[in-house]
Design a protein around this nucleic acid. Structure first.
Length: 722
DNA sequence: TTAGGGTTAG
């Protein structure tokens, strides 16, 4: 079986990044030979543990796409743009065909992908003495019944003539998109003046607020049909409307259309589109657009910078965040509150609590007052990092400075209490919230409290709180139930667990993958017996396929081919975030039942499907095994597999590094709690020569010499042949 | 503040 894992590792490390031929025009253009791209996108696949390795995905198996559905490729999306559309404007066509000359010959214009001059809004807001009457009228229209008849009756009472200015004022004052549309159509039929772009733009803004993309697009087609000019405001409104409706392909489509008509985006439209790609996680495309804009002389503003920062945060990409900070420095830009908030959040997601703390201190020093979002980000970071002292210092600072709190911040503080096991602080805040007029505890607050009690094993308090939640009319949701189930499972109170589960089902709670994961982990606490069957019955209700799969794993005659096929089906049907926990639990279940071979097969499958990125990494001097995201059973399986591979390497007399390292983590993360201890006993069981590092907790080390001696002691034939 | 873009919760 050792060979299976080394096969999987090979799959990870032999693939080169995708070639330029598949990239859209702005990536393949020779215009783009810029530092960022060199640094980030030509990194060849390496097995080192540097952050670049996360950008070198393993070669997926043939059915990978089924399990990880992707958005349509950008090159497909932008094919028309690259091959035809841009060529339609002579200047741009020249840029694409003769790019070099634009750089070497300063007399030629600089390549441009955006208009540096932002579109001006019209300055026609003259003093209108009828403003009050018209706004009052708009309010009445908003309040009238949502039917055409009621609207037509109400419109009779328009206090002044529906002149261009008066109509525009009313249109702009309406809040409900239905009314905006009715009023828009009405003024159109009145034909008192020609409909200009601004009327469409105002109407679209209202439709965007109501997330009505189809109607927005209909208006745009109406403009095209009637020969009314679409300007940058129109396009950016359409694009952001599509974005808000999660119709990213539509956003790209309208951006393409804009170039097609020869209109150049200004910085607002441009950063809007960059955000579209950022939200799709298309980092390369974003950076290409960004760098091309920069090459055109664009000085990005706070909004564009925040878009980049958020994108790198979502990707957990610290190098990217550094790039954003460097960009700001070179632009001479001082971050504003939103940029600080975005970067704090990003640093949290990239796992850099210390840098987040420094950035927060810098922001305070510069006199920027944090808001609820700033504090929420920081509280979350300190909680997840288990930085108790920093968390409590910050909380104290919040109190003494009288910084404003909102419901999300309070709930984040409660979650932090759960992370840090601060029962009394949580109870105090929870009681304050109950007494507050502004925000009462909601299902998030109850869930955080259940988590606090759960993490401390305070089962009775958790049960009592759950009763209170059910009685006070707070929505009993799947997350709260899952927290309580975890707590009851750990306490092995299975009958209570069954009761809670049934109650939740009666209340209409829909089990999700996270809940199934919890049930499965509880199954792995027990080797067999009545309790397991009780939990299996619940899992059967929540996810029958999973129970069938567990039974299949337990049957000796099941072939590896069947396991592979069924595993694929299970993972395909599972939410991305729950796939690794599922695989971990399944491995644990197998090991508890002494099905070690099965456990290895599952680990192999999990590795092939990319559930354990960074499990193995190699440099010439050091081979590492990182089991921090694995359960105890999965970590033990991975360790056995690793040692098997190493033995094989010794057998084949291939080169070995000086040092072998296994990281379990030191127990700051919930999953890692106990992992180091469990790992140590596994090492002892195998008599493997790993010792805990004295400098770094949760790291185990072994030298080449020790490993070779150990392997030879286990298989004397190795010693004879060497 | 009155036609367009960015930031908070399992």
């Amino acid at each position: 079986m050792a060979a299976t894992l080394s096969r999987a590792v090979d799959v990870h490390c032999t693939l080169q990044p995708t070639s330029d031929s598949n990239r859209p025009f702005f990536l393949t253009s020779p215009l783009l030979r810029l530092p960022y791209r060199r640094r980030f996108f030509t990194t060849s696949c390496s097995s080192s543990s540097s952050s670049s390795s996360s950008r070198s995905p393993p070669k997926p198996p043939p059915d990978y796409e089924d399990i990880h559905p992707r958005n349509p490729s950008l090159s497909d999306q932008l094919k028309s743009l690259s091959t035809t559309l841009l060529n339609q404007t002579p200047q741009q066509a020249q840029l694409l065909t003769k790019p070099k000359s634009t750089w070497v010959n300063p007399t030629r214009p600089k390549p441009s992908v955006l208009n540096l001059q932002r579109q001006k809004k019209s300055q026609q807001h003259l003093y209108n003495p009828q403003v009050r009457d018209l706004k009052h009228f708009a309010r009445k229209l908003d309040e009238c019944e949502n039917s055409e008849a009621a609207f037509m009756a109400a419109i009779e009472e328009m206090p002044h003539l529906p002149s261009r200015e008066n109509s525009l004022l009313v249109l702009n004052s309406l809040r409900q998109w239905q009314k905006t549309l009715l009023f828009f159509n009405w003024i159109k039929t009145q034909k008192l003046f020609p409909m200009e772009t601004i009327f469409y733009n105002v109407a679209m803004k209202s439709l965007r607020f109501g997330r009505q993309f189809q109607l927005t697009e209909d208006l745009a087609y109406d403009m095209i049909d009637n020969g009314i000019e679409l300007d940058n405001i129109t396009y950016s409104t359409i694009i952001t409307c599509a974005k808000r409706c999660n119709l990213f392909d539509k956003a790209v489509e309208w951006f393409e259309r804009m170039y097609k008509t020869g209109l150049m985006p200004d910085e607002v439209t441009y950063s809007g589109v960059i955000d579209v790609y950022a939200q799709l996680g298309k980092v390369e495309e974003v950076m290409s657009l960004y760098e091309r804009g920069r090459a055109s002389g664009w000085a990005p503003d706070h909004i564009a910078i925040a878009v980049l920062g958020k994108m790198f945060g979502e990707a957990g990409d610290y190098d990217g965040i550094r790039y954003v900070l460097d960009e700001m420095k070179s632009l001479g830009m001082q971050p504003n509150l939103v940029v600080y908030n975005t970067l704090l959040e990003a640093l949290g997601k990239a796992g850099k609590p210390g840098l987040a703390r420094s950035l927060f201190l810098e922001m305070i020093e510069l006199g920027v007052t944090p808001n609820e979002k700033t504090l929420t980000a920081l509280v979350k970071i300190y909680g997840k990092a288990r930085w108790g002292r920093d968390a409590l210092d910050l909380w104290e600072r919040m109190r003494s400075n009288g910084w404003k709190m909102d419901c999300i911040l309070c709930n984040t503080l409660l979650s932090m209490c759960a992370d840090l096991g601060l029962e009394e602080d949580a109870e105090r805040l929870f009681d304050d919230m109950k007494g507050s007029m502004t925000f009462k505890p909601n299902s998030w607050s109850y869930t955080a409290m259940l988590n606090t009690y759960g993490s401390l094993g305070n089962v009775d308090k958790a049960m009592k709180l759950f009763d209170e939640m059910s009685e006070t009319g707070v929505e009993v949701n799947v997350m709260a139930v899952t927290c309580l189930i975890q707590c009851l499972g750990r306490a092995k109170r299975i009958d209570d667990l069954v009761r809670v589960f049934k109650f939740a089902m009666e209340r209409g709670v829909q089990p999700d993958d996270r809940m199934c994961g919890s049930l499965m982990s509880i199954i792995s606490y027990f080797e067999d017996g009545k309790d397991v069957n009780k939990v299996l019955a619940l899992l059967q209700h929540a996810n029958p396929e999973l129970v069938s799969f567990i039974k299949l794993l337990e049957e000796e005659k099941t072939s590896f081919e069947t396991i592979k096929e069924e595993f694929r089906g299970i993972m395909r049907a599972t939410e991305v975030d729950a796939r690794r926990p599922f695989c971990n639990c399944l491995i644990d279940v197998c090991r508890d039942r002494n099905l070690h071979e099965r456990a290895h097969e599952l680990l192999y499958m999990g590795t092939v499907y990319g559930l354990y990125p960074g499990l193995h990494s190699k440099t010439p001097d050091e081979w590492r095994l990182n089991v921090r995201s694995l359960s105890v059973g999965a970590a033990n399986t991975a360790f056995e597999e690793w040692m098997g591979t190493v033995t094989k390497v010794i057998e084949q007399k291939e080169e070995l590094p000086k040092l072998f390292t296994a990281s379990t983590g030191a127990g700051t993360h919930k999953l890692a709690q106990g992992l180091a201890g469990a790992f140590e006993s596994q090492v002892k069981k195998l008599a493997a020569p790993f010792r805990q590092s004295e400098e770094k907790a949760g790291v185990f080390l072994a030298t080449r010499e020790d490993i070779v001696a150990w392997a030879q002691s286990k298989a004397p034939s190795l010693a004879i042949t060497s």
